[in-house]
């Protein structure tokens, strides 16, 4: 009904008064133009420009010299490439499952008919909106080897002080834990929305059939949540691959290069050494990999994501 009136008016205009129809078109383009111009200026053109830079040896001072694939060769032969990939993969291997599982458990607990749900939700979501730089300073203090709260608390159980941020072994794990703390509230909210959309009749029917709580979870809740989990997985792969702030503030990429992530390395190559061409080729390799992972995730979703309402 709604669309019909709209379409009827549109059709009437286009048939009887082509001038007005053209006017309508023009207004449409005009009102859409700011963002169209915006993405052209700040996304489309920069993407091509970035590709161009990656084929030059430009360092902000030098003339633009075309070097073909030389930057990509340099990058693929650089030792740093495997280091930053290992670091980033280690980070997402902990942070993605960690935050989704924590978010799922919290959402399930808040989906029960208990009191105080809004208060709990407020508490769990708080870390997500707070300034990363500020909470990283706070976590650096909690993680402090000699006086930090964490080691002090662990010493009660006779555990020797752990070099949370100052050892190669622990640094990336420590940052991942902080990230889980920051991300789980977001996942909780998205999953809670997914839980709300599951039709109550499924549970009623299964209760009549005498299904246990665990069976309900495994056979109804989890399958029905797969679209939500898929969404979170895709978003986190894109987002966590670009981690920068936390490692920059908490460890500056150290000790050694044990917490240097891909984006941090791009930042260093570009804005510390001004090797813009090389940095751009790093950025494109990252883009390509994230793109391929996202496509693969979409291709694999048939195997586990359930879209039956």
């Amino acid at each position: 009904m709604q669309t019909m009136t709209g379409r009827t008016i549109g059709k009437a205009l286009s048939v009887k008064r082509p001038k007005l129809r053209r006017h309508e078109e023009l207004v449409g383009y005009l009102m859409a133009s700011p963002t169209l111009i915006g993405i052209l200026l700040f996304s489309v053109i920069p993407v091509f420009f970035s590709a161009f830079i990656s084929f030059t040896s430009w360092n902000m001072m030098s003339p633009w010299e075309w070097v073909g694939l030389a930057n990509y060769k340099t990058v693929f032969h650089a030792k740093m490439l495997s280091t930053i990939w290992t670091n980033t993969l280690k980070y997402i291997a902990i942070a993605i499952p960690g935050s989704i599982i924590c978010g799922l458990l919290l959402a399930l607990a808040l989906n029960t008919p208990i009191r105080g749900v809004p208060l709990y939700r407020m508490a769990f979501f708080l870390p997500n909106i707070t300034t990363t730089v500020a909470v990283c300073v706070v976590w650096t203090w909690l993680y402090d080897k000699n006086y930090g709260f964490l080691n002090n608390a662990l010493s009660v159980f006779g555990i020797q002080p752990i070099s949370w941020l100052s050892s190669r072994k622990w640094a990336m794990t420590s940052i991942s834990i902080m990230s889980i703390w920051q991300a789980m509230g977001y996942d909780m909210i998205i999953i809670a929305a997914g839980l709300k959309s599951i039709d109550e009749t499924y549970y009623e029917a299964s209760r009549i059939d005498g299904a246990s709580f665990y069976k309900q979870f495994a056979r109804i809740t989890l399958p029905m949540l797969t679209p939500t989990l898929f969404y979170l997985l895709v978003m986190h792969f894109i987002g966590f691959f670009q981690m920068f702030d936390a490692a920059f503030v908490m460890t500056s990429g150290g000790p050694g290069h044990s917490t240097t992530t891909i984006v941090m390395h791009i930042y260093n190559v570009a804005f510390t050494y001004f090797r813009m061409g090389e940095a751009s080729s790093y950025a494109w390799i990252l883009f390509a990999v994230v793109f391929v992972i996202t496509i693969v995730q979409f291709l694999l979703q048939d195997r586990w994501v359930n879209y039956d309402a």
Binding site: F42, P46, V47, S50, I262, F271, F287
Partner: peptide
């Protein structure tokens, strides 16, 4: 489009 791709050209 990830931000680190447009970071450098926009800066330039």
């Amino acid at each position: 489009v990830p931000y680190q791709v447009t970071l450098i050209p926009l800066f330039v």
